[in-house]
């Protein structure tokens, strides 16, 4: 091939093509997530505790992927809405398509008190970005009962409480020791 002959740099030939891909998906909530959403409206976080290994999954998945056993309503457990920041990242937004944030923001993993259950990609509120740290104690900021919505809860958003919890606010308690969480996977 002789691309040079057909691709001069200084002409007005067409060299790029835009294609805007958009797809819509509609699906019912699966039963365990439906139950999770209903409980969120009541101000409760629920999970399934694996009967074999004891790990808690939030929202419930209907199985434990570690033990490969199914979990049911009988394995349901109500979780605390207080916890500890066990991981976080500061995102400095680049204005790509779909990015609505303009200032640096935090996405944190919050491990709930009393077990392993962890909510990922959570917003933190009332705390400057540079003060966020592993070990920080936080509590859920629930929307008032009448203002809660589960419209954004889907089978795809494991761990989200969007529409019901605005984020997590530092409680002012002394930090939990960070070494307890660093280098460990959360679920």
């Amino acid at each position: 091939m002789t691309p040079a002959a057909t691709e001069p740099d200084d002409d007005n030939s067409v060299k790029m093509m835009d294609y805007f891909m958009q797809l819509e998906y509609r699906e019912p909530l699966c039963p365990v997530v439906r139950r999770y959403a209903d409980q969120l409206l009541e101000g409760r976080l629920i999970g399934h505790q694996c009967p074999s290994c004891g790990l808690v999954y939030l929202p419930p998945r209907g199985y434990c992927p570690i033990c490969v056993v199914e979990t049911t309503d009988a394995d349901e457990t109500v979780l605390s809405d207080r916890g500890t920041v066990t991981n976080y990242t500061v995102v400095t937004p680049v204005q790509y398509y779909g990015q609505h944030e303009t200032e640096p923001f935090v996405r944190a993993s919050v491990t709930l008190d009393g077990g392993n259950a962890t909510m990922n990609l959570q917003d933190l509120v009332d705390v400057p970005v540079d003060e966020v740290r592993v070990g920080m104690r936080v509590a859920a900021v629930w929307k008032p009962k009448g203002e809660r919505s589960v419209a954004d809860i889907s089978n795809r958003s494991w761990g989200s409480a969007e529409g019901c919890i605005d984020g997590w606010r530092p409680t002012g308690e002394p930090d939990a020791p960070a070494e307890q969480f660093l280098g460990k996977a959360t679920f």
């Binding site: 998906y25 509609r26 398509y97």
Partner: peptide, 10 residues
Amino acid sequence: TTHTIEFPYT
């Protein structure tokens, strides 16, 4: 639930 994905390809 409704979910939309978009990719503006160039």
